[in-house]
Design a protein around this nucleic acid. Sequence first.
RNA 1: GCCCUCAUAGCUCAAUUGGAUAGAGCGUUUGCUUGCGGAGCAAAAGGUUGGGGAUUCGAAUUCCUCUGAGGGCACCA
Length: 586
Amino acid sequence: MFESEQKRIETQIRAYCEAHDLPVGDISWSWIPFSGNWGISASFFQLAADDSRAKGLKVNVPQRAQEITHGIAKNLELSEAFERVEAVKGYLNIYFSNKIYAMRIIDAVLSEKERYGRGKSSGQRVMMEFSQPNTHKAFHVGHLRNVILGNAVCNILDSAGHDVIRANYLGDIGLHVIKWMWCYLKYHNGEMPSGDITRWMGDLYAEASRRHEDEPDAEGEIRALFARWDRRDPDVVALWERTRQWSLDGFDEIYRTLNVKFDHLYFESEVEDSGKEIVDELIAKGLAVDERPENPVVVKLDELCGTKEKYRVLVVLRSDGTSLYATKDLSLAIRKFEEFHLDRSIYVIDVRQSLYMQQIFKTLELMGYPWTKNCYHLAYEIVNLPGNVTMSSRDGTVVFLQDLLDEATARALKIVEEKNPDLESETKQSIAHKVALGALKYSMLSRDNTKIVTFDWEAALDFNGQAAPYIQYAGVRANSILRKAGGVIPEPLALEYELTAVEVELIDLISRVPKEIQRAAAEQKPLFIANLAFDIAQAFNNFYRQCPVIQAEPQVRDFRLRLATASRQAIVNCLALLGIETPEVM
RNA sequence: GCCCUCAUAGCUCAAUUGGAUAGAGCGUUUGCUUGCGGAGCAAAAGGUUGGGGAUUCGAAUUCCUCUGAGGGCACCA
């Protein structure tokens, strides 16, 4: 927003430093950390310390920094975009002109609308692989974090200016599928899913796991079925195709509910054969050791890299020749780069697979693929139940997604009924859905990726405080003001009154959106956006309370109307990045 | 045994990536509606940033060490 002015100031500072024989390095600006102030701030401690070291002097660094800062401040020539400059405790604070700053920000938001905050195109193509559900298994709250996080990071990368390809990789084959089919054939042959498809599939998988453990013959029968699959026995393939589709239909429904879309779908089954060819290649190149049928095919990474207990050993093929996750992942990684010419490939996978991901990337590197340095594992911590219980479909300790959504929506609906009894019931439903889903998404995105989320019903269904409904509500209030004012946004106008502290605060936070998007994209942390959205909402609620809009005199009223509209836009944009919708009313 | 995370207010989490006075929410106590929507606002109380050391003008943030919790390490995904 003030880049050109900032550059001119830097030039002046450099000139001053050179004239006074000071070793000026990078000048890093941050905002002035006191509420009610707009401007940029730079510290000169480092410069003072470097200077005294270079000249062999022993000085009091803070004092020297203050002297330098004072000297710079005195000689600085400011454009009219700035109001004043001050030297405080070694910091050079340059204050923007209220009028110009406030107008620039609000004008930018209102003219760019839903594009406010977006970065310039980087020309970088990034593939994000996320969700990766297994067919023939349940979809529970533990899987939710992946989808929500992956989706939000996609939105953020896109907004930051990258070309994002959203990929899903479906685990439609593997031991779990064979186990499921074994149980189906033996105990449920001919049955059709009823009700919630994904739940039904998951229940049958849980039964399969139980029987697998309990029945002595199970292991052998499952292996035999896997062998038939490997030979592509037509009956097995037909069953697989039919039952797999059930799961896929169920997933579609879930993604529709969550409002998540993918650009490209990969299936494990389609990289199984090519994966085995990669294994042959690994063996031929001497990278993998083949001791079948006694032992599996392995890549002894530590031996190959000269490391100790770092990369361990990667198993790439079972001793009976059937494929593993790694078999397919190697092939998939190559395919991604060949098909899409990626600049970066990001995998959203939980933290427990960190070593595995390193092994895959290392193996690819040893195979000579130059792009492996552009592969990145975006690790996130899992969602646990209270008492550190990990959700497991086998133990039945899961919270089903649908149950949670139903309960959350029911509670939200109850509140909507109280607040807005006159709305059409369809509208109420839609609002309840947006609020419930928003609360759920926000609760997972408002903490760092490396933090374990402990799921508990009370917290997940709490709509008060730092939560999505609070932020949505601020957006709704802004909307309400605008509606009451006739729905017309006033034309850009000069600021003709003294802004109050809360207005300054609010505009300041709105102005941070573009930078925070870049920061969130660079670190793949939706948390930054989640926090900013909350801060803006909080500042808006303050503004709402303290600053009358409609009853204010015309010039103030028009300016505040524009500010309220810009606030709503900023909130809507931030929430959209998190995959959360802002209703018109609630 | 080796490796990876995490530890901040009673609880759940932040902290502009090494900067100025460590901030929110929940919970507790107390106020605010003849004002644009109270899913709101304000105030109070609550802190030796797990312990110790080092680097630095400056450390919740970097390094070392100890403690505690969780996770990973050959044919699950």
